[in-house]
């Protein structure tokens, strides 16, 4: 039977932890609401953009541009790992790293070397631990994602792709489904594989292009990459806050359970001590 004092001390500590996890949950809930709103606000743009890209590709013909043509001679590819900066968000990061590890192993088996870029401190830590070649590490990328930031990051990736001798650029991030479900995914960013443009009845294929289609397609694709990076950042942010919210919620619940158990134990111990004392008194009186 543990000492009553010890139980009491533990009880207080668990209660304090519970307060912290509860507060973190509330903070994450507020941040999550904002991130969720941002994801939804960005949707019309990306939908509109996709429709437009489809049209431009359809009209622009099959001429490969520097962003779409397939390469395969270098046997080197780039992986951007988008993680959170801080932990305490359940299995969010470890799930992502598992998927990334599988991806890198598969590529290695095919004889393709993979360099990595970490967006988020956890990703950097992970890459160093498993000794992947880490080119760049950034923090606070998914902290309130802004479009200009996404543009800077996208330009950086395009430059690395153009000059660094990579065959492809992939991005690994956690796709946001809902507060309860986030799915780690890996998407190919470069070269751009435009969605199979299908001719829809009623949609005219002869559309005016200004400037001419051949000149229009590059800026469109450049913007497409920016839009994709922006989406990745938004989704990663929403996933992070969603995951932290749920994991802090369950931590609070667990703490509640522990408090219940400890209280019971404490009361039982106290009752036992009282009973013992009473027996001692009565048996002492009886001995007289």
């Amino acid at each position: 039977m543990p000492n009553l004092k010890d139980i009491k001390r533990r009880l207080v500590s668990v209660k304090n932890t519970q307060k912290i996890t509860h507060a973190m949950k509330l903070v994450s809930a507020a941040k999550f609401a904002r991130a969720n709103h941002a994801v939804i606000a960005a949707r019309p743009y990306s939908n509109g953009f996709e429709q437009m890209v489809e049209k431009v590709v359809l009209a622009g013909g099959e001429t490969p541009t520097r962003l779409t043509e397939a390469r395969g001679q270098n046997k080197r590819e780039l992986l951007v790992l988008v993680s959170t900066d801080r932990g305490l968000c359940g299995s969010l990061n470890s799930g992502l790293f598992k998927v990334a590890t599988r991806f890198v192993t598969e590529k290695a088996n095919a004889g393709i070397a993979m360099d990595t870029i970490a967006w988020g401190r956890r990703a950097g830590m992970f890459c160093r631990r498993v000794k992947w070649k880490l080119l760049l590490e950034k923090e606070k990328v998914t902290d309130k994602p802004k479009y200009p930031v996404a543009r800077g990051l996208a330009e950086e990736l395009v430059t690395m792709y153009m000059t660094g001798g990579y065959d492809a650029v992939h991005v690994a991030f956690v796709e946001f489904k809902s507060a309860l479900s986030q799915v780690p995914v890996i998407k190919q960013l470069l070269p751009v594989v435009p969605k199979e443009a299908t001719k829809k009845p009623g949609v005219p294929t002869h559309i005016l292009m200004e400037p001419v289609a051949a000149k229009l397609i590059e800026p469109v694709l450049e913007r497409l990459i920016v839009a994709q990076v922006f989406r990745v950042l938004l989704e990663a942010a929403a996933s992070e806050h969603g995951a932290r919210m749920t994991s802090m919620d369950s931590a609070t619940k667990n703490a509640k359970e522990v408090v219940k158990k400890l209280t019971l134990q404490y009361n039982r111990g106290r009752q036992a001590a009282i009973t013992k004392e009473l027996i001692e008194i009565t048996s002492g009186a009886a001995a007289l």
Binding site: P204, L208, L216
Partner: peptide
């Protein structure tokens, strides 16, 4: 203006 021909422009 209304009735513009389909177009994509930068």
């Amino acid at each position: 203006l209304p009735g513009h021909a389909p177009m994509v422009a930068e």
